[in-house]
Amino acid sequence: MRKNNLKGWLYLLPAMLFLGAFMVYPLIDVFVYSFEEGYNFASQTYFDIGFYNFSYVLHDTYFLQALKNTFLMVVITVPVSTGIALLISVGLSAVKPLRNLFQTIYFLPYVTNTLAVGLVFMILFKKTAYSDGLVNLLIHWFGGASVDFIEGPYWAKMFVMCFYIIWVVMPFKILLLTSAIASVDRNYYNAARVDGTSAFRIFRKITLPMISPTIFYLVITGFIGAFKEYSDAVALFGTDLNAAGMNTIVGYVYDMLYGDSGGYPSYASAAAIILFVIVLTITCINLLISRKLTRGFS
């Protein structure tokens, strides 16, 4: 037994070393950082302990802008992408020929480098001095005036941002929803059809309640993912997100840590903790709502 004890820990040792050094220790340290006021990276000194870092971050106009951007992205992309994914998945489940081909195509955005494909989206939407870009061409066809989506008005930038986020998160949602729909027992459908139930009613009364756990899961992970939006924004608007007015909370954390405005790990930590608290709160609210709704279904 003694020998076995030692052996077990030995097998765990590499994982524990890595997790300890790069997860547990940093987790404690980030709270320490966030309370050290005026921390200096070079000399590793600080003036005082307190809540100044949090107050600084909460009063920083860049952070407030990032907060607003992130909330807008979350509020727009989560319902829209879940809704479209649900429509597509229901459609996919209703047909047989070509289903596999469609599923393969729909999954492609998942296996692409977001920075690389973001560049393609930028080119599609961008308007330069000598070319209006493809999207503006389409707008012209429908009689509209051209807009620069990358360096133009705020709503236009937010539109591309949300459009790209939805494009990126769609594969995961479609995949989970189609497999959830496929796992619903066929007997329910057959029974309903014998009773002459309409397709829409079948969807509302059988499919939707049966797949509701997956939908709630997708909404919750969607919220979490959208709150941590960053790379997609860089892909569209470049690394200087503050100048573009399109920074996100995570972008703010990294900018504080490193980059032109960087070197402030204390502010970065405070912002990261604020983000964590927001995500935690919203996840708890989501869980409560989903529990209540699921109870209503059954």
């Binding site: 077990g8 765990l12 994982a15 997860m23 964590f276 995500v279």
Partner: peptide, 28 residues
Amino acid sequence: LKFKGRNAVFTLFLSLMMIPNELVVITN
């Protein structure tokens, strides 16, 4: 493998799954 504290460590590992990367990247 059977050893003392296995379940405790496993629970600890699982709880680490909830830590977002953004929180630890600063110290790393």
